[in-house]
């Protein structure tokens, strides 16, 4: 069984930015009580200040039980056909990422960056990030560009 410390780690990836992907026609009325999406900026980024940065796309994956739990996981190339925002990006739609991580809401335009091989994730995002990715598939990378 996971210890409380382990459970906490599974629910929080250092440096990640939690938020919400917003598609065409969707509207956001304030910060949701629970955020189910997040991105993890590359180590070289200063996400608080950079106007654009590359990141991994994270989702909350239900873990094999028991006990029933969840952890952040990296969207893979195969997963691009499963999520609303990646399906939209596949079709060339304009999607945004909204976060409250820095206080007032920030909005970023979302675009695909080059997918990253599993073996390269640790170098670009830290060794811990590699453990959240599928070992057999390339991971989706996004470029977030801040919208003033």
């Amino acid at each position: 069984m996971a210890t409380p410390a382990q459970a906490f780690d599974r629910h929080h990836v250092p440096r990640m930015i939690e938020g919400l992907f917003v598609g065409p026609g969707q509207t956001v009325n304030g910060m949701p009580s629970r955020l189910l999406s997040a991105v993890l900026p590359v180590l070289s980024a200063d996400s608080a200040h950079d106007s654009a940065f590359v990141c991994l796309d994270l989702y909350q994956r239900v873990t094999d039980g028991p006990p029933r739990d969840w952890e952040w996981h990296v969207v893979s190339e195969i997963g691009r056909y499963s999520w609303g925002h990646t399906i939209g990006l596949n079709l060339g739609e304009p999607w945004q990422f909204m976060t409250w991580a820095y206080g007032p809401p920030r909005v970023y335009a979302v675009a695909y960056a080059t997918p990253i091989a599993p073996g390269d994730i640790a170098g670009a995002y830290g060794p811990e990030a590699a453990s959240y990715a599928w070992p057999q598939d390339k991971a989706v990378q996004l470029t977030l560009t801040r919208i003033p």
């Binding site: 598609g23 065409p24 026609g25 989702y59 994956r61 239900v62 094999d64 039980g65 996981h73 969207v75 893979s76 195969i78 997963g79 056909y81 499963s82 999520w83 609303g84 925002h85 399906i87 939209g88 079709l91 739609e93």
Partner: peptide
């Protein structure tokens, strides 16, 4: 899991709520 099958959460089926909702809007537009 109840049927002792492994199902990856990220790609659990061809249809998802998020995917279908965006489809509804896309087709309607």
């Amino acid at each position: 899991e109840a049927a002792e099958r492994h199902a990856p959460y990220g790609t659990v089926g061809p249809w998802t709520v998020a995917g279908l909702v965006s489809d509804v809007h896309r087709h309607a537009m």
